[in-house]
C-alpha cells in the first residue's frame, strides 16, 4: 500500500468517524429540539422528565428501542429483512462524505461530488423497497411501492434543482461550488431568479426524498400503519428511524452547501456557519412537518411530473442563459 493510498484511507476514516458521529449527535439533539418545538407549536411543553429540560430524551428513546425484543415475521424473507435497516443507515450517511463542513473538514473531496450525492441519495430506494418487499406484509408492501414511486419521481426535480448551481458554478465538485459562492454570491441570493426557486425546488424534492410531511405518503400512519417499518422492532426500527433523520440532516447540509454558500460567512470560522445554516434548514423541515398536512398520492404525482419537472428544466436553462448572456455571469 503506497503512502498516498494510506493517507487517503486514513483521512476518509478519521473524518468519516467525526462527521458520522457529529451527524448522529446532532440528530439526537435535533430530535429533542423537534419535540420541544412541536410541543410549543401545539401549546404543549414537550419532554421534561429525562434530564434537564428533557435533554436526554433521545438517549432514553434509543436505549429503550435497542432493548426491545427482535421479532422477525415467520413469512418474511429473513436475509433481506435483516439487511435492509443497516443499508438504509449506511446510504443515508454516505452522502455526508462529500459535503464540505468547512474549507478543510471534508471527508472526500470528489470532483464529481454532486453526482455522488445524487447517486447515493437514489440508492435509498433500495433498502426501502427491500424492507417493504421482504416484510411480506401488505402495509409494508404498499408503503414500499409508494416510497419507490415517490422517491423515483422526486429524484427528477432534485437532479434538476441540483443542476442549477452546477451550471452557475461550472463545477461538479461540492467544494468547488462552495468556493465559487464564497468568491461571488450565494446562489440563493444572486442570481435570484434561477437561484431561489431552485433552492425551493431542491427543498421540496428533499422533503419528498426523505419522506417528510407533507410527502409522507409511504408512512401515512393513518392508512398504512407504519408503512415499511410495520414489521420492524427494536434496533432495526431504530436504524430506519435514524436513517430518516440522517437523510434529512444530510439533505439540509447539501442544500446549505449548494445554495447558501456552505461554510462562507463573516466573523466566525467556516464550520460555525455551515452548522448554523444546516441546522436552520433542518429546523425548517420540522416547522413544515408540524404545520402542514399530507398530500394525496395523485396530487403528489401531479405536482412532480406536471409542475416541478418542467419548472426544473426551465430553471436549468435560465441558469445557463445567465451564464451565457448576462454580463459577468460566466466569470
Amino acid at each position: 500500500m503506497n503512502p498516498a493510498t494510506q493517507s487517503a484511507l486514513i483521512h476518509g476514516a478519521v473524518y468519516g468517524t467525526i462527521v458520522c458521529l457529529a451527524v448522529l449527535t446532532s440528530i439526537a439533539m435535533g430530535i429533542w429540539f423537534e419535540r420541544k418545538f412541536a410541543g410549543r407549536m401545539q401549546s404543549r411543553i414537550g419532554p421534561t422528565y429525562t434530564g434537564p429540560v428533557g435533554l436526554l430524551q433521545p438517549v432514553a428513546d434509543v436505549v429503550k428501542l435497542l432493548q426491545k425484543e427482535d421479532i422477525i415475521p415467520r413469512d418474511a424473507d429473513h436475509a433481506l429483512f435483516n439487511l435492509a435497516p443497516p443499508l438504509a443507515a449506511i446510504f443515508s450517511l454516505a452522502a455526508a462524505a462529500v459535503v464540505p463542513f468547512s474549507a478543510k473538514v471534508i471527508s472526500a473531496d470528489l470532483d464529481v461530488g454532486v453526482v455522488y450525492i445524487l447517486g447515493v441519495g437514489g440508492l435509498m430506494v433500495v433498502p426501502t423497497f427491500m424492507a417493504g418487499w421482504s416484510s411480506n406484509n401488505k402495509f409494508a408492501l404498499l408503503g414500499g411501492m409508494r416510497a419507490i414511486a415517490q422517491s423515483v419521481s422526486y429524484g427528477v426535480p432534485l437532479v434538476l434543482a441540483t443542476m442549477v448551481p452546477v451550471v452557475l458554478a461550472g463545477s461538479l465538485s461540492v467544494s468547488g461550488i462552495v468556493d465559487w459562492q464564497a468568491t461571488h454570491h450565494w446562489f440563493a441570493v444572486w442570481p435570484i431568479l434561477p437561484g431561489l426557486p431552485a433552492f425551493l425546488l431542491f427543498y421540496l424534492a428533499m422533503l419528498a426524498e426523505s419522506n417528510r410531511i407533507p410527502f409522507d405518503i409511504p408512512e401515512a400512519e393513518s392508512e398504512l400503519v407504519a408503512g415499511i417499518t410495520t414489521e420492524y422492532t427494536g434496533a432495526k426500527f431504530t436504524l430506519f428511524y435514524m436513517a430518516e433523520y440522517v437523510h434529512t440532516m444530510v439533505g439540509s447540509a447539501v442544500a446549505a452547501a449548494l445554495f447558501f454558500g456552505g461554510w462562507d460567512g463573516p466573523f466566525a470560522p467556516g464550520l460555525h456557519w455551515m452548522v448554523l445554516k444546516t441546522l436552520l434548514i433542518f429546523v425548517s423541515v420540522y416547522w413544515v412537518r408540524w404545520s402542514l398536512v399530507r398530500f394525496r398520492s395523485d396530487q403528489l404525482m401531479d405536482l412532480c411530473w406536471k409542475r416541478l419537472t418542467p419548472l426544473g428544466l426551465g430553471l436549468v436553462f435560465l441558469a445557463a442563459a445567465f451564464v451565457q448572456y448576462w454580463p459577468g455571469g460566466a466569470r
Binding site: 435497542l66 450517511l93 462524505a97 473531496d109
Partner: peptide
Amino acid sequence: SGWLSVFAFLVVSSLIGFGLLAASRVIR
C-alpha cells in the same frame, strides 16, 4: 484518493449501522 476516502467513509458508516444492531443483540 477521493474515492478511497469515500470507501473509508462507507466502512465507518457500515460499522455504525451494523454496530448498532450488534449493540442491540447484546442488550436486548
